[in-house]
Write a protein that binds this DNA or RNA. Structure first.
Lengths: 340, 340
DNA sequence: CGAAACTATACATACGTATGCAAGCTGCTT
DNA sequence: AAGCAGCTTGCATACGTATGTATAGTTTCG
């Protein structure tokens, strides 16, 4: 029935050459004549031959595989960051295009992942996608460096200096969102974000917000800044806080779409029209942003470029021994919540 | 700097035994004395030894890896089915718990994936997550069977008889959603779905809808059934169609949350209140369902059980040589869009 | 007390590939 | 005509593990 898998010896016999020649032919060695190569390829095709990945990896001392590690602060089963998930598809495609496989794993903070992937030759390098405060991982990252493991991290380059980083230019995103509201005529723009180290990107978005205001000679008003987690209720609560402060505003930039949507709901139940009374901009471009009513203007991180850059950076680290950090531009997506 | 990785020979030398004894000790062979095993484990620990996956796989002729294959009908870069994505996390955890790694890949329909994974010993088996009409894949599935490749498919068991299948009980989900609306007092319930083979689940949900109505002695009214793709605009369009038909309804069950949300928006702009005038139930429990205003009642497929069942079924196929199909219950999640 | 039965370990080997090195062949130079 | 360079191929081997078989040491029983 299911006969034995063909090996390079079978191909060699069929093509009338030796096994090493088969290997060379398949790997494009220049020392194989075109005619021989053609014969080998034909034989391989005929027998449905595929190189055994284990044997090849053993001999070459590499796995041809990258590992993707999601970190989980708590073991919340649901809700992986949707942006990470949309990167996933692009990472997979990029890996395939560059001849690597992609292994995927989740890790608790406590687990000893740093002694696992490259040590067992499961993977030649690691892409780290973490939640919250990367600083907590510092000791483990240092161990990775010490063991010579190749890795690349998603996040802010400024945040940490260990290893290479790929991240969005959050400051620029915040700048553009705020500038857009200013262009639209808003003068009193509230900011919903948080200052905790759990969301370091939020701080950068705030910085961009401030720069945009100051470039128009407006000084940021502390009464218009409210802390808000990326959650719908948090956005609602922030509007309540602003109301309690009797703060007046005609525009609102939230550092997350979830908070923006919560704010939208809260404002609407207070009878304020969007965008006529308050123009709204979020951040992330979640699927829910399009589905909001009115659809939410937001800042989109480029998931395609992000995923591809992570993979490229990691492969560069593996094959060249070193790589550099990369920062990616964000893009403003204008929808009705801020229509003129 | 980065010295050579330790091998089982290094452990053997340190523990004062031979290499085969190390292998046996680590694999729990009963023919190793407890004292020797302890010495070996200590040595392995001390040198941070990890079994080389390539060498082990080569010797054992298995990879200890499962492959997850997403199918793409077109090469739409974005928007992987969010339900699949939430299964992903659970599959990863289940794999880890059962000692397997998970490889991930996307495939175009045209690609020769069926000669890839198990052939190159990248993976011992394949989980197939497809879009649309599985029937298109039939020839390839037959090839998989012919080559003795282990695989499990997500979808409806009734839909096809090749290979083992894991899927939600869509009929039961449709039944519960409709029964809920009936319990609430609705008597004229519209159905938004589609009859194309591209969404075979929709047909099963429709069947459940009909069964629920008939169990209350109500005959389904064809004028209340509208085709709708899982998309916001499609839901809006469906409401327009119902209006054109002057069809009267006090409840609506959409076979997808996206259509339900579109319907909600369309109804609201017609001035119909939800749930007072029309009670709404969707299907999928997307994140956007919670964020809708009012939050959407929906039928949730159990992503955890789904992911775990797929992995369990596949490992069973690999280790036992055969497996069975499984059907998983859906769960109604009641929110305000259908509140009494 | 000697042989059998068992336990615990070592020896030898195979998995399939990739690569350094040697060797054969062709054709050209002196 | 002999030697040499260049091109192509074969030979030998190593990667690190797991397992069948043999052996040394220990116990048991007639």
């Amino acid at each position: 029935m299911t006969q034995r898998r063909p090996t390079s010896f079978d191909i060699a016999a069929l093509a009338g050459v030796s096994q090493p020649t088969v290997s060379r032919a398949l790997n494009g060695s220049p020392s194989v004549s075109a005619e021989t190569r053609a014969r080998v390829l034909a034989a391989a095709e005929q027998l449905h031959y595929k190189v055994d990945k284990n044997a090849s990896g053993l001999r070459k001392q590499r796995s041809g595989t990258l590992a993707l590690l999601f970190f989980e602060e708590n073991s919340t089963d649901d809700a992986i960051n949707p942006f990470y998930l949309s990167m996933l598809g692009h990472m997979v495609r990029k890996c395939a295009a560059r001849g690597y496989d992609l292994l995927i794993s989740f890790q608790q903070l406590s687990a000893d992942w740093h002694v696992d992937y490259e040590d067992s030759r499961k993977a030649d390098g690691i892409v780290l996608l973490g939640y919250g405060d990367y600083l907590e991982y510092t000791p483990k990252l240092e161990q990775l460096v010490a063991r010579g493991t190749h890795f690349v991290r998603w996040g802010s380059a400024s945040e940490m200096t260990i290893g290479a980083t790929v991240g969005s230019d959050n400051e620029q995103g915040g700048f553009e969102a705020t500038s857009h509201l200013l262009d639209r005529g808003c003068t009193k723009i509230a900011f919903l974000g948080t200052a905790t180290p759990a969301y370091p990107e939020f701080l950068e978005r705030w910085t961009g917000y401030c720069r945009a205001l100051r470039s128009r000679r407006i000084e940021p008003d502390p009464r218009l800044r409210v802390d808000a987690e990326p959650a719908e209720e948090s956005g609602r609560a922030a509007i309540a806080t602003l109301a309690r402060r009797s703060a007046d505003f005609d525009g609102l930039f939230a550092a997350s779409d979830l908070a923006a949507i919560g704010a939208m709901h809260a404002l609407q139940s207070l009878g304020r029209r969007i965008p006529e009374d308050v123009a709204l901009v979020g951040f992330d471009d979640l699927p829910a942003a399009t589905l909001a009513s009115p659809p939410l203007t937001t800042v989109k991180q480029d998931a395609r470029k992000a995923g591809e850059a992570l993979v490229d950076a990691l492969i560069e680290a593996i094959e060249q021994g070193a790589t550099r950090s990369r920062s990616l531009p964000c893009k403003l997506v204008v929808r009705e919540s801020s229509a003129a």
